[in-house]
Design a binder for these strands. Structure first.
Lengths: 233, 233
DNA sequence: AGCCGTATACTCGTAGCCGGATATACGCCA
DNA sequence: TGGCGTATATCCGGCTACGAGTATACGGCT
């Protein structure tokens, strides 16, 4: 993958899309995006916006069209999308839709560190998450329901978002249930660690019987499927 | 939320966890994390690691314990976690597990821009994604299956990851199906736009009948549920 | 004894991101 | 008509991230 994307930033994508409708100055882009509800799916703040617009211009994907002056307000630069920009937009969208990228959600990171908490505390916190997720989903649904008259085509990202949250909720609920009815297999060893503060026999993050200084080697050496990335952003 | 987290970075969390086991120098932290399979859920690279360790030290969450010199290798600084660090770890984990944060997955962003593509192209790309997701899930499953002997407790993040991917797959499949059997309601209007390059009556991102310069206002004015963030990080 | 490949351990420079500051104009109310 | 709150429009400085580079040591082979 040579060079990668010149400007790789979701906000840049939104700018290209916005400008593919008609030329605009940055501030107007922002308000337009806001009015279209883009802030729900793309992080937008002015600092980034002007940086991104500058970069896009530098790489010839957009171009300054005019420096108009309406009323006696401060001058502003109107940008328009270029042919290169249109091409980039098409290609970029294709990639984003067709190929999933590895991302690092915070909850996944936290889960990988769950053993540092005691089993009891973990259960408690997971139950809190269940409640919070239920609330968040209800809110999103309500918001979505309030947007009557907007074609579904423009609400796909919201539908997707809700679907993902719901899947997460289901998964966490399952885990909570396993903890509560004690079908989760490692609860005793886990508790043991937190009581004595040492690994019990047959338990711990690596294959048993390792020496205190060994590399622990989750993946039994030689399993190396070493793939699973595909180039982050 | 005053001050927010001093060092807010998943890698910092991993460092705290790693040091809560025993003191280490940065390079050893990295290899330890790698051997535990942490790179699957947390982005790790040396540049960030040393920055993060420096910051943690600056904020008193970890402290340099000794500058040992083993053999005649370059000197290295061994860090240990402090009490403040242990407290921060506990609190941070609690927050990460209990309260979901708003994140911005790239696919969600792309979905919100899907209308810029033609319906046909979108369908094609979505089908590609389905295939890619199937493959990625199969790979993850295979990898997980290869990790026999590792207690489930240490594989939760992988299980979660697979569950999420699968939910996404299901959702995308559903969308593809709706496109293919033409039950998706907006296909005609969408096609129309791409043929004539103008909005048909009763269609478009905002409530119908708007003037060409109006703010479009997805959310009908006065709906403002204005919440839905929770402070990213 | 000399050489090279690999592991160890860290450093640096560039580039991007973001919050908040800045500066002007407008409109409304007293 | 003076003042203040809000909308318009942009810029800047500091912090963070990260890949690529550096430098040393070890060990095995010839």
């Amino acid at each position: 993958m040579p060079g990668r994307r010149a400007v790789a930033n979701p906000l840049a994508l939104a700018v290209l899309v916005t400008l593919s409708e008609r030329p605009m100055h940055p501030y107007e882009m922002a308000t337009t995006m806001r009015s279209y509800g883009k802030e729900r799916s793309i992080k937008l703040n002015y600092g980034s916006l002007y940086t991104v617009v500058g970069n896009l211009a530098k790489h010839g994907l957009i171009a300054a069209a005019a420096a108009s002056r309406e009323g006696r307000r401060p001058e502003r630069t109107v940008y328009e999308i270029t042919d290169a920009g249109r091409a980039e937009l098409e290609e970029w969208m294709a990639e984003l839709i067709a190929v999933p990228v590895k991302e690092y959600p915070q909850f996944e990171a936290a889960l990988s560190e769950l053993p540092v908490l005691s089993p009891g505390r973990a259960l408690e916190l997971l139950k809190d998450r269940v409640a919070a997720l239920e609330q968040a989903i209800a809110d999103s649904r309500a918001e979505l329901a309030g947007l009557t008259g907007v074609p579904r085509l423009f609400l796909l990202e919201a539908e997707y978002h809700i679907a993902m949250r719901e899947a997460e909720l289901g998964w966490v609920r399952g885990l909570v249930a396993e903890f509560e009815d004690r079908t989760f297999p490692d609860l005793d060893g886990w508790q043991y660690v937190h009581d004595r503060h040492e690994w019990p026999p047959q338990f711990g993050p690596g294959p048993e019987g390792r020496e205190p200084g060994d590399p622990i080697g989750y993946p039994p050496p030689g399993t190396g499927t070493g793939r699973e990335d595909g180039g982050s952003n």
